[in-house]
Amino acid sequence: MSDPVRKPTLRQCCSAAVGSLHGAVRPRPVDERYLRSITDAGLPSTQRTVTVTALPQVPRSAPTPAVVEGVFTPSRIASSLTSFVVQHPEATFIVDPSYCLDAEHRAIAQLQGVIRPFVRPPAETIPTITALRSQPALPALDFALPTHAHWDHVCGLLDFPELPVHLHSIERSWAMTGPVAPVGGVRDALVDRPVVDYELDGPPVLTFTRSHDLFGDGSLVLVDLAGHTPGSVGLLAHTARGWILLAGDAAWHAMQIERVRQKPSFPGLFVDENRDLTFKTLHRLHLAMRLIPVIPTHDHDAARRLAAPDAEAVEPLP
């Protein structure tokens, strides 16, 4: 184990348990005042389109209240560790290389013991490298782009040791600085490989305050989704069927965005670095979802509609 991680305190564990019970009965209410303060800066202008393909992945059935605070119907929803391949005229890259071979020993063993049973995926979960090999029509990868530095968004990199990574500079500093990592199962995937740092140096886009135009042509724009981690980003992609937003773990499921419901305190207190900022980001995603489809990485049903280039488009909410 080469990635030591902070250990939870008894107080944190108690707070998570009590918070989950309270949130199940009285979930955190929508901040209507904050919602009204959010402005729409509009979408980028571009003539180029890209292709976004969700790699094959098996779902895991999760209790809805364990994902969406205070929601019990339906009783269960489908979750998965989905990775996305994006084809741009100048490069092909993978968003959130999620799962490596032998992940139990190479990544999960480095997580806090209290959350391992919750985050451990099904035994038949498909490693990213295996999923890619099942899609021979896809071009070779030029780089990887994690939406954030959590184990289930980077550990697939362990099977691509030479693949460069594009990573938000704030996120890289947070994950890699100091003797003890803020989260486990991450550093081994990022060390000893080419890393291209970027800043969110662009103007507001849609409901998001900062952006970064990945290729300078408006077709792929990274937006600020901070909260889950300090440098979390989403990827706005202009496809032939319209705009979509890959939202990483700013929300685990579209239902959270639709209802503006945070993750329950367990495991939310252990996985969201800043719960208040994560909740504000949910408000921004809620308004954005009225304009374009928003696809959280772990929402299996949303990702499934991007399983092939000619897949059925996801429609925005009315």
Rank of each mutant, 00 (worst) to 15 (best):
L225V: 03
I94N: 12
V180F: 11
V25R: 05
S211E: 09
T177G: 07
W174F: 08
S20V: 03
R76D: 13
P117Q: 03
P161N: 00
A140C: 03
D301P: 01
P89E: 04
S75P: 11
G268K: 02
A107T: 04
R60M: 14
L225H: 00
S61K: 11
E199R: 13
L10M: 13
P264L: 05
W243A: 09
P74I: 04
V294H: 12
P121R: 06
G19S: 06
N274I: 05
L236W: 01
T209Q: 15
C13V: 13
K7V: 15
H148C: 03
F270Q: 00
V50I: 15
V165Q: 05
H88P: 04
A131R: 00
P127F: 08
V271I: 15
V221H: 03
R106Q: 06
L220I: 11
T82Y: 06
F72S: 10
P179Y: 04
H283W: 05
P27H: 02
R305N: 05
V58A: 12
L55S: 01
R106D: 10
E273Q: 13
R290F: 14
P59A: 12
A140D: 12
F143W: 11
G70H: 08
L222N: 09
T125N: 12
E90G: 01
A250N: 06
E162P: 04
G156M: 06
P29V: 02
P318T: 14
L306I: 06
G231T: 03
V186L: 03
S83P: 01
T209I: 13
V294W: 00
T39V: 09
E199P: 03
A175N: 00
E258Q: 10
T239C: 02
P136T: 06
E171F: 04
L101V: 13
R305F: 10
V114S: 07
E162M: 12
T46W: 00
S37C: 00
V314Y: 08
L206Q: 10
L111I: 01
R133A: 15
H166Y: 13
D224Y: 14
G70Y: 12
L236E: 07
M255H: 12
A91G: 09
L101N: 14
M255V: 06
P316Q: 10
A107Y: 04
V180E: 11
D272S: 09
G248K: 00
D192W: 07
L282K: 09
R106V: 01
H238I: 02
L245W: 08
T278P: 01
T92Q: 04
P63L: 07
T278F: 05
S265F: 11
F118N: 05
Q256G: 07
L246C: 03
T128M: 13
A311Y: 01
D249L: 02
S134T: 09
W243Y: 11
L220N: 09
Q110P: 08
T9C: 09
H298M: 13
A311D: 11
A250I: 09
R275Y: 07
S79F: 11
